[in-house]
C-alpha cells in the first residue's frame, strides 16, 4: 500500500516536472490603469485564476500614466522570459499614435486577447430622444448641438464617437471627461449624452437615471439586454475595446504557449464569465496566433481615427 502510494506520488511529480520548467518564479502582470478600475479588476481576477493553473502566483502591479505608455515601456524593458506580462488593450495603439511612447504593438507578442467591452451611448432618462435614430436625426438637423461626453481626448470612447460621426454623417461636440464624470454631467443637464464603457454607467442604468440608446458591439450585452447595437439602430459601426495579455517580443514560444493555455482557460471558465459580465465585459478569446494580426488590423483603424481628430503624432 505504502509502495503504491509512493509510486503514485513519483508519477505525479514526474508528470509535473516538464511543466514546472516554466514558470519557475512568480509572474508579474502590469496593469496600466488605477487600482479598482474595470481594467484592474478584470486583470486581478484573471491573475488569480491563471496563477492557480500556472502553479506560480501572478502579482498584479499598477503602473499608470500617459495613457498606458509608462507601463508598456516598463514591461518592454524586462527580460523576455515570460515572467513579465502586460494587461494589454487598444491603449497600445492610442498611446503610440499620440506620441507618448516609442513602442508600438510590434514590440510585444500577443499571448491571448481575452475580453472585449463595447461603448455605450446614453442619455438622461427624461431626454426627448427615444432611441439612437432620434438622437442622430436631431444631431443631423442641428450640427454641433449634441454634446457628447467621453472619457478623455484620444481615449477609446472618444474614437468611437468620432467613428459614429463619420458613419452616421453627423457633427457632434465632444467633451472630454475622466472616469464617471461624463455621466455626472449628463445627469446635471449640462450635456446631452455620453459615450462610456458599460461598467461606468451600469449603476445609473439600474437606477433608471439614464437610458442606453445603443452599444457599439456586434451583439447586445447580457447586462444591458434592452440596449440595441448600433447596427440595429441603423449605423454600420462595430467597435469594441479589447483587453488581453502580451509579453515583450522575443519571449520563447513555449512560454507563450503555456501562458496562453493558462489565461484562455481562466477566461473561459464560468467563474470569470460571470465576473466579466457584471463588469460589462464579454469574454472574447483570441489565441496567440490570431492576436498579433488582430492588433495590427485594429492599430490601422485607430491610426486613421486619430489622424482625423489631429492627435496622431506618429
Amino acid at each position: 500500500m505504502r509502495h503504491r502510494l509512493a509510486f503514485a506520488v513519483a508519477l505525479v511529480l514526474a508528470a509535473a516536472a516538464p511543466a514546472s520548467a516554466f514558470p519557475d518564479k512568480p509572474l508579474e502582470l502590469t496593469v496600466l490603469f488605477g487600482a479598482g478600475s474595470a481594467a484592474d479588476l478584470l486583470a486581478r481576477k484573471l491573475a488569480e485564476l491563471a496563477g492557480r493553473d500556472l502553479g506560480q502566483p501572478v502579482t498584479v502591479v499598477n503602473r499608470t500614466g500617459a495613457g498606458g505608455a509608462l507601463g508598456y515601456t516598463y514591461v518592454k524593458g524586462q527580460p523576455a522570459d515570460g515572467h513579465a506580462l502586460v494587461w494589454n488593450s487598444n491603449s497600445i495603439s492610442t498611446a503610440y499614435h499620440a506620441g507618448n511612447m516609442k513602442l508600438d504593438h510590434t514590440a510585444f507578442a500577443g499571448v491571448a486577447a481575452l475580453t472585449s467591452e463595447p461603448v455605450s451611448l446614453a442619455v438622461k432618462a427624461d431626454a426627448p430622444w427615444k432611441d439612437a435614430r432620434e438622437l442622430l436625426a436631431h444631431a443631423r438637423a442641428n450640427p454641433g448641438h449634441v454634446r457628447l461626453g467621453n472619457s478623455g481626448r484620444g481615449s477609446f470612447t472618444h474614437l468611437v464617437a468620432v467613428a459614429l460621426e463619420n458613419r452616421a454623417g453627423v457633427k457632434l461636440t465632444h467633451v472630454p471627461f475622466g472616469r464617471e464624470l461624463a455621466v455626472t454631467t449628463v445627469l446635471g443637464d449640462k450635456i446631452e449624452a455620453s459615450v462610456q464603457l458599460p461598467a461606468e454607467i451600469m449603476a445609473q442604468v439600474t437606477g433608471r437615471q439614464v437610458r442606453v440608446l445603443a452599444v457599439s458591439g456586434d451583439t447586445r450585452l447580457v447586462s444591458l439586454p434592452d440596449a440595441p447595437t448600433l447596427r440595429e439602430a441603423g449605423v454600420d459601426l462595430t467597435m469594441t475595446l479589447w483587453r488581453g495579455v502580451a509579453v515583450p517580443k522575443g519571449t520563447p514560444e513555449t512560454a507563450i504557449a503555456r501562458l496562453e493555455r493558462a489565461f484562455t482557460q481562466a477566461a473561459n471558465g464560468p467563474e470569470f464569465r460571470d465576473f466579466a459580465a457584471r463588469m460589462g465585459a464579454v469574454v472574447d478569446v483570441r489565441g496567440a496566433k490570431d492576436f498579433d494580426a488582430f492588433m495590427a488590423r485594429d492599430d490601422r483603424e485607430i491610426a486613421a481615427l486619430m489622424e482625423q481628430i489631429g492627435l496622431r503624432k506618429q
Binding site: 479598482g36 478600475s37 479588476l41 445627469l187 449603476a203 437615471q209
Partner: peptide, 17 residues
C-alpha cells in the same frame, strides 16, 4: 446616484457591482 467622485469610492462602486 451611483457616482464615485474619488478613486476610493470608485473601488467601492466596483465592489458593489
Amino acid at each position: 446616484l451611483g457616482l464615485p467622485f474619488t478613486p476610493s469610492t470608485a473601488v467601492l462602486l466596483s465592489g458593489m457591482l
